[in-house]
Amino acid sequence: MSDWESKQKQFIKDILAGDEEAAVSMARTSLEEGATPVEFFENCIAPSLQDVGKRFETLDIFLPEMVTAADTVEKVNSEVIKPAVAESQAGESMSLGKVLLATVQGDLHDIGKNMVGLMLKVNGFEVVDLGTNVPPADIVARAEQEQVDIIGMSALLTTCLPYMKDVCDFLEGKGIRDKYPVIIGGAATHPEIAEEMGANTHGGSAAEGVEKCKMLLGKL
């Protein structure tokens, strides 16, 4: 077993148990031993999170474990990786892409959206989460402001579907439709609706949403 493999095994254990101290300490030690922050991210954090994501998909683990793992990694990133990257000025991007997520106007349901956000994060995406009940104009404005790579929208209530279409229409009207691939999901949606409203694709589950985002950015 290579050094990275054994580290990864332990790292998975630590993040699933929510052991921030152990996970942060491993990252610090690895960097002190000569690994660059990007190396630690690519060889330990990213594969560990992918493993966590896969286990969640197969119901080997559940929401508490995935939330705790993501939370613990957030701590490692903020306390060790990000400061080290800033210091070394490596400037290398560790993100697969930036995804804007929002539950559309009129709808406050966010369990599904949050699960997608978590799954995207554990798979290496950067997520800009606008929360719930977000008007179409705000979604478009923030996409521009944040220069995201994908716009993701969720709705549980069928009465809120028109707001998703409004976003596609706004993008079209502003002449920036091609700049932002749009993915929709949530209990009120299905692939045919996505096609009808002019979205690029539909995610039927958190895992499928991640795959579709990778596909949209040509990362599959």
């Binding site: 929510g18 508490p64 939330v67 705790t68 949050n114």
Partner: peptide, 11 residues
């Protein structure tokens, strides 16, 4: 909240 409760199960 959901997220807080899930994390509390461990922390």
């Amino acid at each position: 909240g959901l997220r807080g409760t899930m994390v509390d199960m461990y922390r």
